[in-house]
Amino acid sequence: MAIEIVQCGALITAALLMIIGLVALVYLDNVLKKIIGAAFIGDGVNLLIIALGYRVNGIPYIFLQNMDVNSFLGQASYPLPFALVLTSIVIGASTLAVMLALAVVLYKRNGTLSATALLNDKKLGEENNE
């Protein structure tokens, strides 16, 4: 059982990352900290997906000519989560980039990063168009 600690640890870390991210999104006021929290949630989910593909004493999932099929099937780790998590990381990176760019623009315009000041639209239903 000692070896499965790796997988267990990864899953617990993933859960912690998600919870920390949610707490940051709800309780922290700085917009940048909120963005970091949001990125944490995505990272937690990615870690969970990677942990799903983990196999105790696993080998890479590349089938070579001289391998025995049965031992390969018994040992190879599961490839699908790795393929998926790559896509997911790319999506997360681009989302993060756009969010940070927006934070930069908002900071330049308003001179503050406080979420209560920036994202609190008290002008109820008032939308003027330029």
């Binding site: 949610l22 999104l25 909120k34 949001a38 949630i41 989302t95 969010m99 927006l102 934070a103 994202l119």
Partner: peptide, 9 residues
């Protein structure tokens, strides 16, 4: 920004 943060959740 609001939409993206909520969207991340």
């Amino acid at each position: 920004l609001k939409y993206m943060l909520l969207g991340e959740v």
